[in-house]
């Protein structure tokens, strides 16, 4: 028996919205400790890693580990039928399920929707993501980071991110010209202005803005985002989801020819 009930179903809707342009199909692994998912985009440039802890669910039961192979597009179609205030319950009784049941219930418990989504058997290629002590960690407003990426992507396809003890600089060079946006360490009380820099070693890496813009679809999951960088390492962009877990995106940097 597997059953997971989310009090705020809208969070699940937002997660699926955030990853649906990046990955087409995923294996969600359910275990006693919660749900996890890892998937790469078709070009293998970016990787999505989702972890949802059992404690974050209103009800959670998973008697034995199961793998749920899902088409994100089809999952998204079903989740469109859930209201933003609904609870969402995922359920299956089978040991090797061929479908996953969904229950959506509104706050008054006056409307209950039930769907079943056919599952797929997917070859999963799980990569060992090393635990990394990142040499530059930037925590800032997710909306502000999203705005910077969007603005710069009209000038160039790539952005160079360079950290120093005091600031982080986003630089672009394009056909029309060049520019940069520098964000300084700022211990403001207001979330939108606050920028926390933890720089053990400065780094300078270049990334494709197209992917960063896709990651930023997760902006509604968290008011802050953390950018974790080390030389010769993929950028890790993390959105923490309250008590539930985290959605992480990894992006391989541009490398020398």
């Amino acid at each position: 028996m597997f059953e997971a009930k989310l009090q705020q179903g809208v969070i699940f809707k937002k997660i699926v919205d955030a990853i649906k342009d990046l990955v087409k199909s995923v294996n969600i692994d359910a275990s006693t400790s919660g749900l996890s998912m890892q998937a790469m985009d078709s070009a293998h440039v970016a990787l999505v890693s989702l972890k949802l802890n059992e404690n974050g669910f209103k009800d959670y039961r998973c008697d034995r580990p199961i793998t749920l192979g899902l088409s994100i597009e089809n999952l998204s179609k079903i989740l469109k039928c859930a209201g933003n205030d609904d609870t969402i319950t995922l359920q299956t009784d089978e040991e090797e399920p061929s479908s996953l049941k969904f229950f959506f219930e509104n706050q008054q418990a006056s409307k209950i929707s039930e769907f079943s989504l056919n599952l797929m058997s997917l070859d999963s290629e799980s990569l060992g993501i090393p635990d990394t002590d990142y040499s530059s960690v930037i925590q800032m407003s997710s909306a502000e980071f999203s705005r910077i990426c969007k603005e710069l992507s009209s000038i160039s396809e790539t952005v160079e991110i360079e950290t120093s003890k005091e600031s982080v600089k986003f630089s672009v060079q394009g056909d029309i010209g060049a520019g940069s946006i520098t964000v300084k360490n700022n211990q403001s009380d207001k979330d939108v202005d606050r920028v926390d820099l933890q720089i053990d070693q400065p780094v300078k890496l270049t990334f494709a803005l197209r992917y960063l813009n896709m990651f930023n679809k997760a902006v509604s999951l968290s008011s802050t985002v953390s950018l974790n960088m080390s030389e010769e390492n993929p950028l890790m962009v993390e959105y923490k989801i309250d008590d539930l877990g985290s959605l992480r995106f990894y992006l391989a940097p541009k490398i020398s020819d």
Binding site: M40, A43, H44, V45, A46, L47, E125, S126, L127, G128, I129, P130, T158, T206, A208, E232, N233, P234, Y250, A252, P253, K254, I255, S256, D257
Partner: peptide
């Protein structure tokens, strides 16, 4: 510069 891939950095587990 060329685009790196995740596999350039993370190995198979």
């Amino acid at each position: 510069m060329k685009q790196g891939t995740i596999k350039n950095f993370f190995g198979n587990s």
